[in-house]
Amino acid sequence: MSDIAGFPTKVDISLTVNGERVEARVDVARHLVDFLRLDLGLSGSHAGCEHGVCGACTLQVNGEVVRGCLTLAAQLDGAEVWTVEGLTDTGSLADLQAAFVSRNALQCGFCTPGMLFAAADVLASGKVPSRAEIREHISGNYCRCTGYEAVVDAIETVARSRAGGGEASA
């Protein structure tokens, strides 16, 4: 790449990833998934399409779910990033993970880390979403194996159990 005056091609970033402080000098073209996978060894985030459609790279930045492949590492100075590895350690996905396992809401597992973030996001409001709302909310995450029903079931189960066994809204 030719250099353009005043625009560095590497930048320094300081951020927290899974609660740990990380400092790095990154190529400005490197997206967050590659930064996590190649620079930090966090291979739980998956690159499925690298153009923002499949959702396999979905993770959390500053408390919001984002596409890792549509976020540049260079943008993350001061950011707080959580990946499936980190949220597994904190236990905040534990009930969803258990429900995914017991309902077999994953087959090959490649989409699953991203799917879990989408699932956690739809449950974040604390309400019990309808099946249609769950389907709508996870529809940015491709799963080619399950046909989605088991995923919807698992999320619905967790929603109800978090709400204390309440019924889903119509």
Partner: peptide, 19 residues
């Protein structure tokens, strides 16, 4: 019977070729 490899996969501990 639950799949023995499923928990690994939901925790981001899969080992795909690119890993």
């Amino acid at each position: 019977v639950p799949r023995p490899n499923a928990r690994r996969l939901v925790e981001g501990r899969g080992r795909y070729v690119d890993d």
